[in-house]
Amino acid sequence: MQRAGLTGLVLLVYAAHQDVWWWRETGPMLFGFLPPGLWYHVGYTLAVSALMGLLVWRAWPAWLEEEVERHAHPHEEREV
């Protein structure tokens, strides 16, 4: 369920990249010099950073590193 939700969120963010609604607009300008086609994508980039934080927090493939450890020390568990 969580995996489906996160996958859906990633797809939604991917779709949000295609901001066709202000394709030809020069305003409103943010800080007086950033046109919408630029400030939207700067904000988008920062939102992506938050999304990546969420993925790392909720879906980090920790089992990969555990497998590497097991592979490197195959007898450790038995000894413990």
Partner: peptide, 21 residues
């Protein structure tokens, strides 16, 4: 013009970290 940022920067900002992940 500004299209360059959306073309390469913001799309890379999503796809590259996702690929690393």
């Amino acid at each position: 013009g500004i299209v360059t940022y959306g073309l390469m920067a913001s799309s890379s900002a999503l796809v590259i970290p996702l690929c690393l992940f």
